[in-house]
């Protein structure tokens, strides 16, 4: 074996194929999502003032902080570099009213990152969308703060609070589309969210299946239930949920058909909660329930490998 003693400097690396890799990495995907969230953040700042920006930054920074802390406590390499914690923080902020006390938001990111994500093993292992669970816990714990909606363009200490359009049902389509309504930070403008959606599609970060199935189902269901379908998809969190939360890779199915089933399920549960239950909004609960069903949907929609079944008798 003479290949070991050539000048004693001989080093060839042997590794299994393939030797090349596409430039798409987890970090790059998360960066695309952060960019896609920016238009909605811009609208939130326009509508609710700088407080919206402060809340979003606090959420993002605290989420990253919790993630780093968890990794260090468990003596693991810190995973904050993949940006997924930052994405979770921003999406959670988008689900909060702009007036929420900052310390409550930090509790929200604690629930999202530490309990839902890291305790299950970190990125890719969580069964539910961290931001959704964070929002639900805050909703149940601080119901008053979580439902004190600021009216748009009312700034300062004397900000007038009022009902969200889902409750008052008075907003025009144009107001809903461009975010001149009350509500959670990120959900107010369907227009801004759609810009993010198109960006994610162009960057091939997501496929349209989950989103279209979700929004489409809400539209059809509302129409059949005798409600105003356009209003139902524009008001509340449907757009935010459908674009940024139902498309979360980790907690949604992997195949196209799985994604469609997931989206339809989200739509139906959202409508059932909105129309029949006590809550005005059902997006977060619907996505959470479908997150839990995802492993079953994945099992149901396993691909049929090409040539996998001896279906044709050998001629």
């Amino acid at each position: 074996m003479d290949f070991f003693d050539i000048d004693n400097t001989f080093k060839l690396t042997v590794s299994p194929s393939p030797q090349i890799k596409s430039p798409v990495t987890t970090q790059r995907i998360m960066l695309h999502v952060l960019i896609a969230l920016c238009p909605a953040l811009g609208f939130a700042v326009w509508v609710f003032g700088l407080r919206a920006l402060v809340l979003t930054l606090i959420c993002a920074v605290s989420a990253v902080g919790w993630e780093h802390l968890c990794c260090k406590l468990r003596d693991r390499r810190s995973t904050v570099g993949d940006l997924s914690a930052a994405v979770t923080g921003v999406i959670l902020a988008f689900n909060l009213p702009a007036t929420l006390p900052l310390w409550e938001a930090v509790i929200g990111t604690f629930v999202a990152i530490v309990i839902v994500k890291q305790m299950f093993g970190g990125l890719g292992q969580n069964f539910a969308n961290p931001a959704i669970v964070g929002r639900i816990v805050l909703m149940l714990s601080f119901t008053a703060d979580m439902t004190r909606w600021v009216l748009p363009f009312e700034r300062g200490a004397d900000a007038v609070s009022g009902a969200t359009p889902l409750v008052s049902r008075t907003a025009s389509y144009a107001d809903l589309f461009f975010g001149r309504v009350g509500g959670c930070l990120g959900e107010v403008s369907a227009f801004a969210l759609l810009i993010g959606f198109v960006y994610l599609l162009i960057m091939r970060v997501i496929t349209p299946h989950n989103t279209l199935a979700f929004v489409g189902t809400v539209f059809v269901f509302a129409f059949l239930a005798g409600k105003d379908p356009v209003f139902e998809i524009l008001a509340g969190g449907v757009m935010l949920g459908a674009v940024f939360m139902a498309t979360d890779y980790v907690t949604s199915p992997q195949t196209a058909w799985g994604k469609i089933i997931f989206g339809i399920g989200c739509g139906i549960i959202t409508c059932v909660i909105r129309f029949c239950a006590n809550y005005a909004e059902g997006v977060s609960f619907s996505i959470l329930i479908m997150n839990i069903l995802t492993p079953y949907i994945d099992r149901l929609t396993e691909t049929k490998p090409l040539g996998g079944k001896a279906k044709e008798a050998k001629s």
């Binding site: 690396t13 030797q19 090349i20 890799k21 990495t25 093993g121 980790v250 992997q254 691909t303």
Partner: peptide
């Protein structure tokens, strides 16, 4: 050595391999 990064991170369930 390789154009491939050595570092593996968690599967994010994105379905790109499928």
């Amino acid at each position: 050595e390789s154009e491939r990064s050595k570092k593996q991170t968690n599967c994010i369930n994105c379905g790109r391999c499928i």
